Amino acid sequence: MRIGELAHRAGVSTRALRYYEEQGLLASERTLSGQRIYAEAAVERVRLIQQLFTAGLPSRTIVQLMPCIETGHASHEAFELMAAERNRITAAMRDLAAARDALDRMIDIANHPTPEHCPALREPAWSPYHAADSTTPIPEQAAAI
């Protein structure tokens, strides 16, 4: 089947299929005119690739897992690889939860400002400038020096 038909049947874009080929996840034959031709089994393979992407696996990891998937025998290394990816996702979720919590605090401060968090609410909000208190020359003094 041609790339358009595979894309339609597998529910992905033709661009995704080209990407899968570039990453070594999918193979095609070429016609004399250079058009891609895929085997019937490519539909199921593309759906599986989509499931692995949905599970959060990057293409480089999927490439490493494909030999196990193709043979139906998972190696110890494949399980370690999937566990490492799960740990990576879990850490990213923790980081996102911490960012969300920090944003929630900022939203609460914005909704309920206090002098501690908002300089405009402090008494006085700013201090007047006193030339006698300053050791830094003001522009007129600097020009005269």
Rank of each mutant, 00 (worst) to 15 (best):
F79K: 07
E40Y: 15
N111V: 00
M66D: 00
A125F: 10
R100A: 12
E77G: 05
A78C: 08
V63N: 00
P128I: 04
C68G: 09
A132C: 12
D104C: 10
M66G: 01
P113E: 03
C118A: 13
F79R: 02
L52C: 05
A102D: 15
S75P: 05
I69H: 05
H73K: 15
A131E: 13
T71G: 04
I62R: 00
R86T: 08
Y38K: 06
R100H: 12
I107T: 11
P119N: 06
I89G: 01
R100W: 06
L96R: 14
Q50R: 13
M93G: 03
A41R: 13
H117S: 09
P113L: 04
A132L: 15
R88E: 03
H130E: 11
I107C: 04
E116N: 06
I49K: 05
R94N: 12
T54K: 10
D104F: 04
T90S: 12
E44L: 11
N111S: 04
D101P: 06
T114E: 01
W126A: 14
A97I: 00
L103W: 14
L65W: 02
D133G: 05
T135S: 09
A42M: 06
R105L: 08
A39L: 11
Q51C: 13
C118W: 03
T114C: 01
